[in-house]
Design a protein around this nucleic acid. Structure first.
Length: 440
RNA sequence: GGGGAGAUACCGAAGCGGUCAAACGGGGCAGACUGUAAAUCUGUUGGCUUAGCCUUCGUAGGUUCGAAUCCUGCUCUCCCCA
């Protein structure tokens, strides 16, 4: 991963549409100094998800601009809970779970940031538990609490909303901003960090940090902050969630590269250009050319394909990307007919099934005597109930076996549909494709 | 502590003794049109051994030939007064 292109970081973010707010003077300061900057990640799950990708890309561009990115995992703050954007008090996670999650997140970040100590600005990873674990409550009150007034803390939007709301806010979450502010101060003093970045919902927390630094270290101490807008989708759905509302994870075990690729390929025209700007490492001119191509021939969906390929490459690597594309082409190509499936070798089927976590299995004994199609669809979880299965077949006419429409809900399916004694395909509608593996 | 309103399917919301598996809207799924876009139009959306049967209208009982609808206890939510 080569990341040594020097550029104006803020300018870069600007054309990519990634600036929501920044402290005055940030651009000049970054142009004159190569510094360290950080973003915090919550260790609330054992994988990052697509929603975390925006801050990750910020760090990526930060590093490309010659600065040093620091990823902070909130081992301590994660134990407390950020009230920003939350209407209710958060549940605690155990220390053990948090630690495991931190490790996983660290691993994932290495895909995006260059941690190689041989380069001048290798990325670093810190965990705020390391400096919080030894601080006593009294010490914290004297060192930090003294510098910030309650008035200041209550003026924050995140706090105000909760004070107005019904469920209130606990002292713990109220104090959260002090913890995050202290993070910045600590990193400022010990890691030469001069800027904190984050989503626009973090603005209040970031400014508490810069405020604390100036209070504690004096006016000469220069600290900056930049936030990016929260990503939205034109259709109003949450960005980074599947139709079912589940997160799209970066962990290939949770969301397969194929599914990941499919998430992006399904991006609407309206969103694709915006997303490409944020997530694609391609430069401005190149992106403009792609957008133009797309406008000339939208049917080719060059924009979505580029978007999906670029992000999948970055997240999962070349090999996984190639396979995701291959599988997508195979499953969605018009040329794929029953005959084409029949021609596939067993190895090819193995390959296809390995890539897709939409692969489901059924035991040979269930199939050999013939199984009712309705029972099969329910057993495989393709439909929720037999009623739905019948509706899909007879009313919607949306079930296809090995690309051919299945018309009769009472007809039995048997080993004749199974290729190489092992695999066959089921489609429900236009977008749901399943590889079924016959197991012993 | 006193008074009032309410809890209906994935969500919102009608229904106020039979014709209610429950109007309508949203969401979901599917079909048509397309480009695995968007918009639009259409169908569908508790389960089953489907001319029928079973389970659902906060929860437990009761009244009735018959209850989502009436009565009682319980739980929870919201509002007003203190």
């Amino acid at each position: 991963m080569k990341t040594q292109i020097s550029m104006n970081f803020i300018e870069e973010l600007r054309w990519r549409g990634m600036i929501h707010d920044s402290i005055p003077g940030t651009e000049e300061f970054l142009n004159e100094n190569k510094v360290s900057g950080y973003i915090g990640f919550d260790p609330t799950a054992d994988s990052l998800h697509v929603g975390n990708l925006v801050p990750i890309m910020m760090l990526k561009y930060f590093q490309q601009a010659g600065h040093t990115p620091v990823a902070l995992v909130g081992g301590a703050t994660g134990m407390v809970g950020d009230p920003s954007g939350k209407s209710e008090e958060r549940q605690f996670l155990s220390e053990e779970v948090l630690r495991y999650n931190q490790e996983c997140i660290h691993k994932q970040l290495t895909h995006f940031l260059d941690f190689d100590p041989a380069i001048p600005n290798p990325a670093r990873m810190v965990n705020n538990y390391d400096w919080f674990k030894d601080i006593g409550f009294l010490q914290f009150l004297r060192d930090i609490g003294k510098h910030i007034t309650i008035n200041y803390m209550m003026a924050k939007d995140s706090v105000k909303k909760r004070l107005e709301g019904d469920s209130g806010i606990s002292y713990t979450e109220f104090a959260y901003q002090l913890l995050q502010g202290y993070d910045f101060l600590h990193l400022y003093q010990h890691e030469q960090v001069r800027i904190q970045m984050g989503g626009s919902d973090q603005w209040g927390n970031l400014t508490t940090g810069t405020y604390l630094i100036s209070k504690k270290l004096g006016k000469e101490a220069k600290a900056f902050a930049v936030t990016c807008p929260l990503l939205t989708r034109a259709d109003g759905q949450k960005f980074g969630k599947s139709a079912a509302g589940e997160n799209i994870w970066l962990d290939p075990k949770k969301t397969s590269p194929y599914q990941f690729y499919q998430y992006w390929i399904n991006t609407s025209d309206e969103d694709a250009e915006k997303f490409l700007r944020i997530f694609s490492l391609r430069g401005r001119e190149e992106q403009q050319a792609i957008v133009q191509q797309h406008q000339e021939d939208p049917g080719r969906r060059q924009l979505q394909k580029t978007l999906a390929a670029d992000i999948t490459l970055l997240t999962h690597g070349q090999e996984a990307l190639d396979k995701a594309i291959e599988l997508s082409n195979f499953l969605f190509s018009r040329n794929t007919t029953r005959e084409a499936l029949q021609k596939l070798s067993l190895d090819q089927w193995e390959e296809v099934s390995r890539q897709s976590t939409d692969t489901i299995s059924i035991s040979r004994s269930r199939l050999e005597g013939g199984i009712n199609i309705v029972d099969l669809l329910v057993e495989l979880g393709i439909t929720q109930s037999k009623g739905e299965a019948r509706r899909s077949i007879e009313k919607d006419r949306s079930i296809r076996i090995n690309t051919e429409r299945w018309e009769d809900s009472s007809r039995q399916l048997n080993m004749q549909e199974v290729f190489h004694n092992r695999y066959f395909q089921i489609q429900k509608g236009k977008k749901q494709r399943f590889i079924v593996k016959v197991v012993e």
